[in-house]
Design a protein around this nucleic acid. Structure first.
Lengths: 208, 208
DNA sequence: CCTTGTGAAATAGTTCACAGCA
DNA sequence: TGCTGTGAACTATTTCACAAGG
């Protein structure tokens, strides 16, 4: 693991990991970079190069052990432990996020949810309590939270993000349609379907 | 507009457009690339270079007219018309997508929704009818659909995407956690919060 | 002055192509 | 033979830096 690893590489590792998990559950024992590339629509060289930043996981002439490579990626990505997540904003979108079954099996625990109007929003929340957002600071002080998911309206999002960061949360998954301003030590990822659609219409406009 | 425009540039235009829309509604008349860059956390040079692929929209010594630049981007991105969208999969996630208020004001009309179990899923769908997915092909033949949003379980997603493409839909917004296989003329964007979280845990693991 | 638009320079990222090993 | 791991070559993207215009 010598040099600085490009962010684009890191963002591809979860994709590889997910594919390998699928191969594992289908009982595949060995896979080549060619096969991985075919399944993902990327070049085999890219996969080999990406993995080479982290170590030598393959066997010449054979390929990669699916179990071994999945385990290595699990460690590299920090998926060998569970992560504590809070969700702020429990409107329609927030409720969909809270009830999404995909986080738990990957090690993400939504340990608390917050809203400005906790009683109104509690309806339809399976088991999770919705806490008043005024409690955010004291709760963050009481327990280390790794990741904050923001699902409040655009107008409140920056303030919520600032409060999360002040409380020591330095990874933010932002569903609000704003370009969040954060200090350099904080990482933000944006989930934004409208931006994705607007990138597609550019191409639709010409090709058809 | 001479040469081939990089995809990364196109993906930033919607971000610029959104910021400009906000400035417009706040009554800001003129903005510099420096100010735009400050608001978005990118360099002013990048904004100027990106815009220069499409024309000369600024005034030296002054900056950009917010109205003018917003209008130019609207045209470039094809946002001066409405786009027809179908949504396949009306489970918890699909219902949240169907009821999201952010698509309509940006020109995206969800004209139909589909599910394998339309009666069960209709509960809680405000106004939109849920049609049986077996009708997908005939409906796509009857009217040109621009974009398909896929919100079905992972196991069914590739089949749904294939059916959309066969029906002439060549832009796909995929919420299912799979790496979709599509022919070169089809564009896919992935909305995948778990991949985003897994990219973040890589960094959490080291820095803290 | 101030700020754009843009070639040129610098960086970043991808793909090639092949030595080396099972 | 088949496939990895990796420098080197190539391609893409960003940033610099400055002429030119208001």
């Amino acid at each position: 693991m010598p040099l600085e690893i490009p962010e684009v590489v890191i963002d591809r590792l979860p994709v590889y990991f997910r594919l390998l998990s699928g191969l594992q559950s289908r009982g595949v024992g060995v896979v080549s970079s060619q096969e991985l590339g075919d399944a993902l629509g990327v070049t085999p060289a890219q996969i080999r190069k990406d993995l080479s930043y982290f170590g030598r996981f393959g066997k010449q002439g054979r390929g990669y052990s699916v179990d071994r490579l999945a385990e290595e990626l699990r460690l590299i990505l920090g998926l060998d432990r569970r992560w504590k997540v809070v969700l702020v904003g429990v409107g329609r979108l927030g409720r969909a996020i809270a009830s999404y079954r995909g986080f738990d099996p990957q090690g993400f625990d939504i340990v608390a949810t917050y809203d400005v109007n906790p009683e109104a929003q509690s309806a339809g929340m399976d088991d999770l309590e919705v806490r008043d957002i005024s409690r955010l600071e004291e709760d963050l002080a009481a327990q280390q939270i790794d990741i904050g998911i923001v699902a409040v309206p655009a107008g409140e999002a920056q303030a919520v993000i600032d409060r999360l960061i002040a409380g020591g949360v330095n990874s933010i998954l932002n569903y609000a349609p704003i370009a969040a301003q954060v200090p350099p030590h904080v990482q933000v990822r944006q989930i934004d379907p409208v931006l994705a659609l607007q990138g597609m219409t550019y191409h639709l406009r010409r090709r058809g």
